[in-house]
Amino acid sequence: MKKFVKMLVSSALVAAMAFGMCACNGGNGGATQAPTQAPAPTESATDAPADTTATGELIKVGIINNDPNESGYRTANDKDMKETFTKENGYEASFFYSLKNEDQIAAAQKFIQDEVDYLLISAAGTSGWDGVLEQAKKAGIKVILFDRTIDASEDLYEASIVSDMAKEGQQAVDWLASQGLSEYKILHIQGVMGSSAQIGRSGALNDKVKAEANWSIVKQQTAEWSEETAQQIVQAVIDSGEKFNVIYAENDNMAKGAVAALDKANISHGVGKDVIIIGFDCNSWALKELKAGNWNYDGQCNPFQAKYIDEIIKNGAKQKVVIMEEKGFDAKTITDDDVAKYGI
């Protein structure tokens, strides 16, 4: 009897947990998978019933994305997808989220069985996709990659819509060069080492520092996208008494952490101040800092791929690799409209 009660309690607990997991994803309105769960059937985002013949004129798309909780970028990306692939725009979209490559591949197979017209993929990992993409090709399903590329033959997909991180870095470095400082002493805070954003954004700066005599790096360190770590690194440099006049942080959060350390040490920053602050990603709050003149530059990492995909589906792909237009904002020229339009 006691055992039975225990079993009952434990199963209730498991049920409660499963509910908790569903609940925590409810906020995103999708079928986000907690990494510990096995791939489950995906959930259709539209309200349309299973009757596909009635909705025959709609284009069926299966969208495989990373977990929207991953970052502000991903949240904006997912929101953009949901807003574009609606019934009103002629789509019937199903979503699947996972940060795990194998789960994503399993979901792709499921979408192929469901006979979607298009498969849109932001892959968690670069390899292992050949098999499933070949299946898709045989079934006549067109594949469009967004945000991330994969290691597979170009014949297997229609197009790939990506950001050029190296270009983002180059734009920021060019902007910095245009400021005409007599000497650049740069504190460089990097993202997670080996990530494409880190490699692209670090690359441009490293090349410039090597090429110019009056550019030097005071300290180069990874804060792994974390603001507290960035704060600690900047604090350590300030404590060591080294002087710098530029902080090049590879995302907004790290720039924010760096600024917190500067504030503590009474070092002025922003337009016309002692230290130039550069961030990336264009979060709304970061653009507001820019507008207020506390930061100097913010580089965009465009999460809005949906309209490019929409264009390709409706009018066909003109080229294999589509590089999105990405802006860089200067604190002196940014407008309130920019903050509203480009902030994520």
Partner: peptide, 16 residues
């Protein structure tokens, strides 16, 4: 350990 950060994001609707 696996679910906590998702719960944290959910508490604030994943807002920045």
């Amino acid at each position: 350990f696996t679910a906590g950060r998702s719960i944290a994001a959910w508490i604030n609707n994943n807002d920045n």
